[in-house]
Design a protein around this nucleic acid. Structure first.
Lengths: 130, 130
DNA sequence: TAAGTGTATTATATCACTTAATACACTTAA
DNA sequence: TTAAGTGTATTAAGTGATATAATACACTTA
């Protein structure tokens, strides 16, 4: 539970993956899930770096990718804000989900599992709500 | 379609992932799927390296991991052979599938998707046989 | 004007991965 | 016995991604 809370966001970083990627994915998930409101300001690069105890450049790298995906808008001198474009958020959310599904099905297929197997395994594991 | 065939195995390598990991996973999948018979010999380290145009050390790394997982048995001077332990193969196959399912569900949950959503997306994508 | 933003640059360090070149122990077949 | 083919170990080197550090600049706001 190495969880860090800052500006309405939750982070837990480890060494299993590049830091910038973890920051990117966790902010992105928060946006996709609607845990952080559209138009809201997220912590500044320096603030985030200090809170997560990582280098500002590493945070920058994550923030720049978020902007490239148009999930955030950055205003020089003001800060970084979640986009107000709800459609864009849904677009990204669906794209990421599709990628996850494809990748998952490919993996399962490579192990020789069929659709029926996969469905029953998911139902068995299903600790997911709804 | 950068596919390479050697000793009943199919490989397609790229730069998106460590080479030794790709070799490992692709041999492992072939075993799990039963595409290569139990007890069968797989190409020698040097032979495989030459065919895939990679370094013998890189192949070694993959082969050693396969042996650690007890999916292969190596006999000095003779070669590397698929295990004859069918139960072990199923064990690994199921373990990998469980991991894939867990990781997938975690990812989907992080995007705010529930079980129903997931099931319908899988049915929609389902290009998998059976 | 001062403090807080995003941004860019240069340098350095570390680590995983890969290749290369050799060498050794073992097995098998000629 | 010998030669060729196995797995295995070692040492060295190069490369690229990642992360840090230090600094500077442009912009905005109070």
């Amino acid at each position: 539970m190495n969880e860090i809370r800052i500006g309405g966001l939750r982070f837990s970083l480890d060494l299993s993956q590049p830091l910038y990627e973890q920051v990117l994915e966790q902010v992105r998930s928060s946006i996709a899930k609607g845990e952080i409101a559209l138009g809201e300001k997220i912590p500044s690069v320096r603030e985030m770096a200090q809170a997560l105890k990582i280098n500002p450049n590493t945070v920058m790298r994550a923030y720049q990718e978020l902007e490239r995906e148009r999930l955030t808008e950055t205003r020089r001198g003001q800060g970084t804000f979640i986009t107000t474009d709800a459609a864009r958020v849904q677009e990204i959310r669906n794209k990421l989900a599709e990628q996850a599904v494809e990748q998952f099905l490919a993996k399962m297929e490579s192990l020789g599992f069929g659709l029926k197997d996969i469905e029953s395994m998911i139902r068995a594991k299903g600790g997911v709500s709804q």
